[in-house]
């Protein structure tokens, strides 16, 4: 599998990371009013992780011969993001979306790029736990995959 074949998946993953960086930035701002809540460092850590992955994906897209997809000016978020529970739910939803995207990236890549995608899939799954997600047997795969 060459870099060119992986380019669409790399671009989709980069687009997902743009969403995640935006979302965690907003969530961190909304959580700033919660004082010493453990939610704040968790959101800050997730934001930093997604910024790092976004930057890495830009490099990977360029290396594959592509022009990295740009972020939108803004992304639609749920209107109600004022309570810790609402913010946590949105953080979990965002992490799950990224984990699914990385699982698809694993399928589309090879070599070092795939190795990075596998590692990032695992890191994203662990981040789901931070935001209250339950442990899963097959994170990133469609629900019911093992029984279909």
């Amino acid at each position: 599998m060459n870099d060119t074949a992986a380019l669409p998946a790399l671009q989709r993953t980069l687009a997902a990371e743009h969403v995640a960086v935006y979302t965690f930035g907003v969530l961190g701002g909304r959580a700033a009013v919660f004082g010493d809540s453990p939610l704040r460092p968790a959101l800050a850590s997730a934001y930093d992780a997604h910024v790092t992955r976004r930057d890495q994906l830009r490099l990977m897209v360029t290396a594959a011969g592509g022009d990295p997809v740009a972020a939108e000016a803004a992304y639609a978020l749920p209107r109600a993001l004022t309570t810790p529970a609402q913010i946590t739910d949105e953080a979990l939803r965002t992490e799950r979306a990224c984990v699914s995207t990385y699982a698809a990236l694993v399928a589309a890549t090879a070599g070092a790029d795939r190795g990075w995608a596998v590692a990032t899939l695992g890191a994203g799954a662990l981040s789901e736990l931070t935001f209250g997600g339950p442990p899963q047997a097959l994170p990133g795969l469609p629900p019911g995959f093992a029984t279909d």
Partner: peptide
């Protein structure tokens, strides 16, 4: 690869 990677991630979550 996607399934094997998901299994590795799933074990890490336990």
């Amino acid at each position: 690869a996607r399934v094997l990677g998901s299994i590795a991630a799933g074990i890490r979550m336990q």
